[in-house]
């Protein structure tokens, strides 16, 4: 296995949880809701996903448990932010605190256990093609699922009527409501989709990445996913670029160290964050006429009667 191929494979795996969580958050935000609780939903998804897989012996059951846990967490958020019109920033942060606590309580039962990680695909013939074979056909299923998910989301947002309505809710909920669309219900579905994705992203960590559960194992990836959504200026295609770019910088700085390039590791570690800021500034600069953020993002909506 060549070095380049190996690096690409590591980047694919490292980017997958980011991509999954960020895709969910993108849909949520496109509907006009800012859910900062991604980290909380992810870590509960990780605990429940591992628990499910450990008890059932099935990775798929584990992944489903993670998604259900993420949805349940997102419903708490929806109840607060949509049902009671509470400030979304505060609710999201509270959700993260709650999630960290809950995951510790849930996970206490199976700390120290291990499972067999999700298998890497192997399609005879295809997976054996040099270079491209392993990358295109030889990683674990979640990697390809995450890409399929982004494509699906792109198609939904830009090619379906429902997607158009969802974007309308995010851009101007008053008009969407006036046109007779159930703004709150649409947002509820979007928030639940975000929860399912975050739960799955969390579950990916103990199911495929490092097959055991440890409290706090998401280690801030939920926050990165949030950042990626903004970085991608709420566009699925840019999200893919952003997630892989972030994964690549993370992995490459490890490789640079291993190769003995003597730059302080703190500087290398800060590169992804600085790069994100610079790219964001450049992107914002290149755009004329304001931001592409959903116009109603983060604002509460209470239908008039």
């Amino acid at each position: 296995m060549g070095l380049i191929e190996a690096i690409i494979l590591s980047v694919l795996a490292a980017s997958t949880p980011l991509l999954l969580a960020a895709t969910g958050e993108l849909v949520t935000e496109r509907s006009g809701v800012l859910n900062l609780g991604v980290e909380g939903m992810m870590i509960v998804g990780a605990a429940c996903g591992f628990g499910g897989a450990w008890l059932s012996g099935s990775i798929i059951v584990g992944a489903l448990c993670g998604m259900v846990a993420g949805i349940l967490m997102s419903l708490i958020f929806a109840l607060m932010a949509l049902g009671l019109a509470v400030n979304q920033v505060a609710t999201g942060l509270a959700l993260t605190i709650l999630g960290i606590g809950l995951s510790g309580l849930i996970g206490a039962g199976f700390v120290g256990e291990r499972i067999t990680p999700a298998p890497h695909l192997h399609i005879p013939g295809l997976s054996d093609i040099p270079l491209a074979g392993r990358i295109l056909f030889g990683e674990d299923g979640f990697v390809y699922l995450s890409i399929a998910l982004v494509v699906g989301v792109w198609w939904f947002l830009y090619r379906t009527r429902a997607g158009l309505i969802l974007r309308a809710c995010g851009d101007n909920h008053v008009s969407a409501h006036a046109l007779g669309y159930p703004v709150l219900r649409i947002r509820l579905y979007a928030v639940m989709f975000g929860g399912a994705c975050a739960g799955l992203a969390g579950a990916y960590l103990p199911l495929a990445y490092t097959p055991f559960f440890i409290p706090g194992m998401t280690a801030g990836r939920g926050w990165i996913a949030l950042a990626l959504t903004v970085f991608a200026s709420w566009r699925p295609a840019r999200l893919v670029v952003g997630a892989y770019l972030f994964g690549a910088v993370t992995i490459l700085q490890l490789h640079a160290q291993g190769a003995g390039i003597g730059i302080p590791s703190q500087f290398m570690s800060s590169l992804p964050y600085l790069a994100t800021i610079i790219v964001l500034v450049l992107l914002s600069r290149a755009r004329t006429g304001g931001s592409t953020a959903p116009a109603a993002l983060g604002t509460v909506f209470v239908p008039d009667r």
């Binding site: 296995m1 070095l3 190996a6 690096i7 590591s10 490292a14 960590l205 990445y209 490092t210 055991f212 440890i214 706090g216 194992m217 280690a219 990836r221 993370t250 992995i251 490890l254 490789h255 291993g258 190769a259």
Partner: peptide
């Protein structure tokens, strides 16, 4: 001291090199 994901990434990078 403790970031399972990053530790796994580092191990992969070392083996790859």
């Amino acid at each position: 001291w403790f970031d399972p994901g990053k530790e796994a990434d580092a191990a992969k990078a070392l083996l790859d090199q």
